[in-house]
């Protein structure tokens, strides 16, 4: 639990994973390169005391996850951003099926995201329906840079993507997390582009689009879009990890997001296990925007803004009544363990 101004804060980690990046799961050299690249991100921005050995980073246990998020990381709930990468990993990297094992064990702690890929074509409609019927899928994580049958990416504005978004409406899925972050392959046709979000957000005003990693390294393009579209949100994963070793950049990114996007549309995320939430949440609770940025942008990261970003905004998107949810969580095995710890 973390407090801001003496008040308890409900924390939803809007972006977390339970992956298997171990050599047994590598399908080819891409799997190895993938997890090594993730580890570079881990090393590049983690404070020393939060660095894991590579062995553990490749594959960690459910117990690790429960401890890192809930028992030590101040997180109350986590959103599983399922990521498939079946062309790199034999059993997938962290599919909704893998994540479901934890959801079953702690149903109130997680929001499970599924996914679609427009390159499945019409044949994939049934697969997608089945996924939503068989698993408690509450949101989607889309990964437009995923490799598939020789194609190395797609756009949210592709006609077939629209067919799937229509299906989301029918199936009652409202929250679409889209990875628009650090470059992974996409070739020149859609590299460095967040503009497909703009089209989809305009044409599906009843769906919410959470742009994960705030478009970094295309923060500026993202800001212009999010300012115009009421249903475009900023997912802080990756940006949040700047807070310890690059606090000035973090402050500037936050000032920009508060100015262009606003405190009601920013969602905290740690990108666990690239980074553990403990140090990020603690630093965020303490964080103050430097005076010059406050002046220049006319914004502030107030205690109220922090509470919204850490949990209230995500709770609103997913229809979570925080008071009721807290009462429920206090009773689950993790809640009981926390109570025992506190006693």
């Amino acid at each position: 639990m973390i407090t801001i101004d003496g008040q308890e804060v409900f924390v939803i980690d809007g972006h977390m994973h339970f992956w298997d990046g171990s050599p047994q799961n590598w399908r080819n050299q891409w799997g190895e390169a993938w997890i090594k690249c993730f580890y570079d991100y881990h090393l590049a921005l983690s404070p020393k005391e939060a660095v894991w050995p590579f062995e553990k980073f490749m594959k960690y246990s459910a117990d690790d996850l429960v401890r890192d998020l809930f028992l030590e990381g101040h997180v109350d709930m986590g959103i599983f951003n399922s990521t498939y990468l079946r062309e790199f990993f034999t059993n997938g990297f962290n599919t909704h099926e893998q994540n479901y094992a934890l959801v079953q064990q702690y149903p109130d702690r997680f929001i499970l995201c599924g996914s679609f890929d427009p390159r499945w074509g019409e044949a994939g409609f049934d697969t997608f329906r089945r996924m939503v019927e068989q698993y408690p899928i509450r949101g989607l994580k889309l990964y437009t840079a995923e490799w598939y049958n020789g194609s190395r990416g797609w756009k949210l504005s592709d006609p077939m993507a629209y067919r799937y978004l229509e299906l989301c409406r029918e199936l009652g899925i409202k929250n679409i997390h889209v990875h628009k972050g650090p470059t992974v392959y996409p070739l020149s046709k859609d590299a460095f582009d967040v503009h497909d979000i703009d089209y989809a957000a305009t044409d599906f005003p009843d769906l919410n689009f959470i742009v994960e990693h705030v478009g970094l390294p295309r923060l500026d393009d993202f800001c212009w879009i999010a300012k115009q579209e009421k249903n475009v949100y900023a997912g802080l994963a990756v940006a949040s990890a700047f807070i310890a070793t690059r606090p000035r950049y973090f402050a500037e990114i936050m000032a920009n997001l508060l100015y262009w996007v606003g405190e009601d549309k920013i969602l905290f995320g740690s990108d666990y296990a690239i980074w553990t939430p403990k140090w990020i949440v603690e630093a965020f609770a303490r964080f103050e925007l430097p005076e010059d940025l406050k002046q220049e942008y006319g914004v502030d990261l107030t205690p109220q803004a922090k509470r919204k970003i850490l949990g209230e905004n995500a709770a609103r998107l997913y229809g979570i009544d925080i008071a009721a949810q807290k009462a429920k969580l206090a009773q689950d095995p993790i809640g009981q363990q926390l109570a025992a710890q506190a006693a």
Partner: peptide, 16 residues
């Protein structure tokens, strides 16, 4: 302000 947003993006990317 527009220029600044582009620049902070560039600098954060460089740092990363």
């Amino acid at each position: 302000r527009h220029l600044r947003t582009t620049v902070i993006n560039l600098r954060a990317s460089t740092a990363l």
